[in-house]
C-alpha cells in the first residue's frame, strides 16, 4: 500500500533557484528509501513538505490516496513522523517528553522502546536537557514511535553522532523499523554504509530526484 505519493512537487523560496522542481515520489508501507545529495540541495525541505511543515509552491501530495489538503494536518503529522537533525527536547524529565504527545502510552511499551534504543530503564527519570546528543536523538526516536506512525522521516539523525553511536543507531533503527513494519525516508550522507538495509537510494541535486 502506498503511504505517501508526491506528484510534480516544486519548491522555491523568494527569488532563489528552485529547490525542488517537478519531483515525483512514492513510499510504500514498510519500505525504506535513502535520500542523498549535497548540502543545501533541498533534502530537509523535501522532508518538511512530506511532514507538511511547509507548503509546496506547486504539485500535489497524498497520504494513503487522500490529498494532504483533505487530511487533518495533526493526524497526518502523527502518522508521518519527522525526526530532525538536531534533537529538540523540552524542559522536564525524559518521561515528560515521552508522554508529551502520547499521555496514555503504556509503561511497558515505553520501557521496551527505550530498551530497543539501548537506553537504560532509568532514562525516563533523567532531566531531558542534560542528555548527550546521541541519547537525546534516541529519545526523540522513541517519542516519535510512541505515536505509532506509519512512516518516519529522518533528517540526518546521525549527523551529530560519533561513529560508534552511528552504528548503534543504524542497527537499532533497522531492527525496530522491521519489527513495526514502518516505512521510512532517510536523508543521510552514508547511504552506502555497511549494515544498512537494502532500500531504494535516491539522489537529490539541482532540484531533481534521480534513481527512482
Amino acid at each position: 500500500m502506498e503511504i505517501i505519493r508526491a506528484e510534480k512537487l516544486s519548491q522555491s523560496f523568494d527569488g532563489s533557484a528552485p529547490i525542488l522542481s517537478n519531483v515525483d515520489f512514492s513510499l510504500s508501507a514498510g519500505e525504506v528509501v535513502y535520500v542523498t545529495g549535497p548540502s543545501g540541495s533541498g533534502k530537509s525541505s523535501f522532508l518538511r513538505l512530506l511532514n507538511r511543515l511547509a507548503e509546496p509552491r506547486s504539485g500535489a501530495l497524498f497520504f494513503k490516496g487522500a490529498t494532504y489538503d483533505s487530511t487533518d494536518v495533526k493526524t497526518l503529522r502523527k502518522k508521518i513522523q519527522l525526526v530532525q537533525q538536531t534533537p529538540v527536547l523540552f524542559d522536564g524529565t525524559v518521561m515528560d517528553n515521552l508522554l508529551l504527545a502520547t499521555p496514555l502510552a503504556g509503561k511497558e511499551r515505553i520501557k521496551r522502546l527505550l530498551d530497543d534504543f539501548n537506553l537504560p530503564p532509568d532514562t525516563g527519570d533523567k532531566i531531558a536537557k542534560k542528555l548527550s546528543v546521541g541519547q537525546a536523538q534516541r529519545v526523540c526516536m522513541v517519542r516519535s514511535l510512541l505515536l505509532e506512525p506509519e512512516a518516519i522521516l529522518l533528517d540526518e539523525p546521525t549527523a551529530p553522532l560519533d561513529d560508534d553511536n552511528k552504528e548503534i543507531f543504524y542497527r537499532t533503527f533497522e531492527r525496530v523499523r522491521k519489527e513495526l513494519g514502518l516505512a521510512a525516508v532517510w536523508v543521510t550522507h552514508d547511504a552506502d554504509r555497511a549494515g544498512l538495509e537494502k532500500g531504494r537510494r535516491l539522489h537529490l541535486e539541482k532540484g531533481a530526484l534521480s534513481g527512482r
Binding site: 511543515l53 493526524t75 503529522r77
Partner: peptide, 13 residues
C-alpha cells in the same frame, strides 16, 4: 521555531 515546529510535528496545534 525549532521547538514550536517539533511540537507541530508531534501533532499539536
Amino acid at each position: 521555531t525549532a521547538e514550536v515546529e517539533t511540537m507541530l510535528s508531534l501533532g499539536f496545534s
